[in-house]
Write a protein that binds this DNA or RNA. Structure first.
Lengths: 206, 206
DNA sequence: CCGCATCCCCAAAGATACTG
DNA sequence: CAGTATCTTTGGGGATGCGG
């Protein structure tokens, strides 16, 4: 939206920079780390090469991301967020939290993208930053939540280990259904953390 | 963007509902309370009546807002957010916080919309919810911040009263410049709160 | 191959006029 | 007041081309 909103308002100002179609999804991808043009294109199904190029140019001009050449051995260039762009993390997280409320349950097929679990844990737990050490094994992903910090892979000495399918994980958060959820360790700690994280209501009309 | 992003991702899901041009600005307006069609049109300079009508229809279909008829004496209908739509408050606030970082200083002319001060205080202080009672008199607006709650109008027995022009208020937050800022009461309390609220850096390229 | 630029087409936004 | 109808303009989707 190169078109200006003609308002002295920070929301309008922000949307003029990252409000166009695809922009925040590009930011979402780059929040996971620098990526090449082709990887972005693959991670954003249906974006169209011209639109991706245009968005990258716009976002670079806005100071949200920067193009960087990798050192000679690997002749590739990557896009990465600037500090200014990194500050969009809270925006993306809140969008995700809101979006979660009306997400359908995951199918048992393969619609989950690799590396989705750390993102999901960040979305769910970052605002509460629970004490304790947790390990989540969901589908074929494993991630840890240690004192509010999310990391891929197993935890060192977890207080609780939770294992479930993506669908069971979904229903645990939306309806507190424990069917198909296996817990090892301090189950009460887990329950307290779930209550604190509580915001996923799935109370929607459409 | 009725066009779907074909991704099982809460961010994409959210943007499919409120990611179109103007949508989040309409939500921003309705966060201040129910509004009539004409008031929305006036608050959104340049929106065009057809686009506004289309967005309202889309947002209503998505369950974000609802159309309500006021009781007979006043033959008017208003649009108001549903609980689902109200949950967008955090999204709008984070967008505002990010947008603030690259906002230019307010001109001394009249670009501020009436009622802007409570919104600004919410954006700046809601995440830290400072203890204490503050009264802000900026330009011709007055608002109170009492134990983290923002309200229009003066405070009852404020610990601090801050008076400034919009521009001085801006530079106080961006560069900690106290020129043109008048403080009555517990100035140290105010300084501590400012340090806590700290996020407005104005460190931008473009 | 990767990293785009070009071209064409259609859907959506802008602007304005008009109506129940 | 609260929209609809119509027209123009802009921007996105899709395919293809092309230099390094």
């Amino acid at each position: 939206m190169p078109k200006h909103y003609e308002q002295y308002c920070p929301v309008a100002h922000a949307l003029e920079r990252v409000g166009e179609r695809w922009s925040l999804l590009i930011v979402r991808e780059l929040l996971k780390g620098p990526k090449r043009y082709t990887d972005l294109s693959a991670a954003l199904p249906g974006i169209g090469t011209n639109v991706l190029a245009a968005r990258l140019k716009d976002l670079e001009a806005a100071g949200v991301l920067a193009k960087r050449r990798l050192p000679p051995p690997a002749p590739a260039q990557v896009y990465e967020l600037t500090a200014y762009g990194l500050a969009l993390k809270n925006v993306v997280r809140e969008l995700a939290r809101w979006g979660l409320q009306s997400m359908p349950a995951p199918g048992n097929d393969d619609q989950l993208a690799p590396g989705w679990l750390p993102d999901a844990l960040d979305t769910l737990f970052a605002p509460v930053a629970p004490e304790g050490s947790f390990e989540f094994r969901i589908g074929d992903e494993v991630a840890a939540l240690v004192d509010g910090e999310v990391a891929p892979g197993p935890a060192e000495h977890p207080d609780v280990v939770l294992e479930a399918t993506p669908a069971a994980f979904y229903f645990l958060f939306t309806e507190r259904r424990w069917d198909g959820v296996e817990v090892e360790g301090d189950r009460e700690l887990l329950e307290r953390v779930l209550d604190a994280a509580a915001p996923v209501d799935a109370t929607v009309a459409a």
